[in-house]
Design a protein around this nucleic acid. Structure first.
Lengths: 336, 336
DNA sequence: ACCGGTTTCGCAACCGGTTGCGGTTGATAA
DNA sequence: TTATCAACCGCAACCGGTTGCGAAACCGGT
């Protein structure tokens, strides 16, 4: 009972050849109805399950999509993955998830194992430490469709799906201005990432448009909750502390809120808070936060749809890559 | 440039046979040093990468571990996955993650694809809707090691790794009692799950030991944040509302806190809160929560270590299954 | 010159399915 | 009776590696 049963077993039991069994199982017209019935019945009875590995080897196709993410912990990416899974399963594919953990080596490694496992397409969000993108060029050279999302490389020609970073930040900061805030700070992430640059750009645009000065001491950053928390602590304890703050991500938001709590500031009386923040986190705080929803679920869905379009298209490399900007939604709650 | 290069390509280029190339690449003693050098050099130059699918087919081994979880969204499971990945990668294996999304069919399906992909071992946390466990028996019959964690089936003989649910809840409730709370409520999850039963048991033990009555109206439940929130709302607005509440999980904690916030109750003056809650969520609330840390990271690590022990042992089915209880850590913060 | 032993490599089967092509059988038409 | 053709099925190669076994080539010893 320990070995799984194969086409050969069925063939021997019925005195047929492997080929006949194989064809019978997939309703090939060359096979007589009686043979088909017999084969299918015994296959059913023995719980025959085709071996994906063998099929993958023969067809050079695996019905698997590779997903490369920096991490799946806590924020944002879980939502993206939910969106991805929905589409992937609609197509009868499986998802192979690899985490880079923000390590360049593991990212390269992950791409390698995906290729070695014959994935038919790749969804990727790059590590913040990645500055050499040749492993991705490799994928493209091998004609394997790849779609980047959220954290995208600037210099690669491929499909991209991302939130409208500039617009989202611009809207958020503008909303702070409209509610009367005069000293608005921002906390950004790793400067390597395009999203950091773009979100900072949106911040500056909004301030500039309002004729306000951009002060360097109101621009802080951090890679972890703790780093953000202490950076925020410094920010809040300077001579002219900000009266509004924009958080670039769920992670930075957490650090900021912790610092505000320990500084016993009242929200929104003392300081207003808004930023990119995914459900359900924005409503875990007290008061619930006004937020720009990055809509990870939609990003995942759209990126996967784009990917399947490429997979199904012939000569996908001929089609020019597209950039999809997802417009994020701003929800106003008690923090502004 | 689009096709990946194979052992055959190298063989032809050097006028050797496939077998010689294969052996040269893995330093087989039968091959002369010069041949090895030549083969390795050209393999390097052509970026030869062995095809995992072919190897998997031949060896009936994939160097892949299958992970089945209800979902990877938001709470708890991401931490577990981090722990799992650490060990899996230490062994040079890859992780294949499947989500059941709390659906029985998708759980069965997920197990099937894992088997079809020749995973060498399975880590599983069952869906709350699962009541028939024959798909797991299947795995065991095929001699594929499987380790359950957190949400484990009661009637299957296999290794289990779980937090000490009874003890954790007992400790938490006892702590509420020690800080003077008299009317302690609990919010549990789906009654199908052993963890719900056990955690409820710990709650009753603590109350019983203190000579206190167990009131049904203080035992609420919910499957989603919204359900928990409205159940908590009812709980808090009855004639004799509780002055302490225990949350069975991060998810229920979120619903409880939302309800407490909207009811404008003060923590811990009006009501004390404690429960199973993973970092960093327990510190996102205001005040930061006293919590029993389920230690997902450790669970993942230990479950995976147990699994690899099984994989490496011969006749793993001979060894009697073990149950590993992880003692959770209680951290007291501002909410009690 | 012959024998035994080592070194080095190739043949072919195998893992589990898939598929082009060719063969056998029986019925039908000429 | 024989040529024709469809219906049905098997042979064998293939995907990309792995491996048992045998063989050729070369060695030194006698």
């Amino acid at each position: 009972m320990s070995q799984s049963i194969t086409i050969k077993d069925i063939a021997q039991l019925l005195g047929l050849s492997k080929s006949t069994v194989s064809r019978a199982l997939k309703d090939h017209p060359d096979i007589s109805p009686e043979t088909k019935r017999a084969v299918k019945e015994i296959a059913e009875r023995l719980h025959y399950k085709p071996n994906h590995v063998a099929i993958s080897l023969r067809h050079r196709k695996s019905r698997m999509i590779g997903l490369l993410v920096p991490n799946i912990s806590y924020f944002f990416f879980p939502s993206v993955i939910e969106g991805i899974e929905e589409i992937v399963h609609q197509h009868g594919y499986q998802l192979m998830i690899l985490q880079s953990n923000e390590s360049y080596d593991r990212e390269v490694n992950g791409i390698d194992t995906m290729l070695a496992n014959n994935v038919e397409g790749i969804l990727a969000s790059v590590s913040r430490r990645t500055e050499d993108f040749s492993h991705f060029k490799n994928v493209i050279d091998r004609d394997i469709p790849i779609v980047f999302f959220d954290r995208v490389p600037e210099e690669i020609k491929a499909d991209m799906v991302l939130v409208d970073d500039i617009r989202g930040t611009y809207d958020g900061v503008k909303h702070l201005l409209e509610t009367g805030r005069k000293r608005i700070a921002i906390c950004i992430g790793h400067p390597n990432l395009l999203i950091s640059k773009n979100r900072l750009k949106g911040y500056k645009m909004a301030l500039h448009e309002a004729g306000m000065e951009i002060k360097d001491e109101y621009i802080i950053s951090g890679q972890s909750i703790d780093e953000v928390e202490s950076a925020t602590h410094q920010l809040l304890n300077q001579d002219t502390p900000p009266d509004g703050i924009f958080a670039i991500s769920d992670l930075t938001m957490t650090g900021i809120m912790k610092s505000i709590y320990t500084n016993r500031l009242r929200i929104p009386e003392d300081i207003a808070v808004i930023g990119f923040c995914e459900e359900p986190f924005s409503t875990m705080y007290n008061p619930p936060l006004s937020a720009i929803q990055p809509m990870g679920f939609e990003i995942g869905k759209i990126a996967t749809e784009v990917l399947f379009n490429r997979i199904q298209a012939e000569h996908s490399f001929m089609v020019t890559p597209e950039i999809h900007n997802i417009t994020s939604r701003m929800v106003i709650r008690g923090s502004t």
